[in-house]
Amino acid sequence: MMDASIIRSYLPIFAQAFTLTVIIGWIGIVLSILIGMLSAFVLYFKLPVLATVVRCYVELFRNTPLLVQLFFLYYGLPSAGVRMSAQVCGVVGLGLLGGSYMTETLRSGLETVPLSQKESAYSLGFSKAQLFVDIILPQAVSVSVPAVTANIIFLLKETSVFSAISLMDLMFTAKDLIGLYYNTTESLILLVLFYICMILPVSFVGNWIEKRSRRNIYGD
């Protein structure tokens, strides 16, 4: 039913696809964290106009599937004159989707810091900038860590739809090999194993960080 030699011969092909998926996935994740941080600051400081734009962006991307976003970016935008390669499209799509999730996560992290912390900082003579950098940010970050890890895992799973814009990722490779040689079982086993390699470590690291960062919750 299962042929080890087929698995061995498929291994390098899957390894290559795995590398591509991981690289594009993580660049997208870094981008999403950057977008999320900027947008969360905009919402937290209630910057006029920008806050409305950010809120629209967050609602728009949280309420649509990545597949539809990628189709729009990859097949739709070229008709309007914006052309991106599949790789760039994957990064941008994942970054925009993830950015909207990260914004919500980081904003609610910032808002968990109680008012008393700010008042105490002011009474100790902290400036506004010091208050934000030394008091609010560290606490907000440690509160948001579990939710950010959950978002990262979600985004890594979402990379599976990259194959729809003909990026040669793990799904694309599996589907291609199944179509070519009909070794369905072997291809699917490798697909599952490589996804486990991609996501399980993040899940473990996430649990470990969560346990450690619990010690850093002050107040209350």
Partner: peptide
């Protein structure tokens, strides 16, 4: 469910079950 992307599960059920 937390580790496997839904698309992978979809492939396993749609392509894998018919073969295996």
């Amino acid at each position: 469910v937390r580790i496997m992307p839904q698309l992978v599960l979809l492939f396993i059920v749609y392509f894998g079950f018919s073969k295996a």
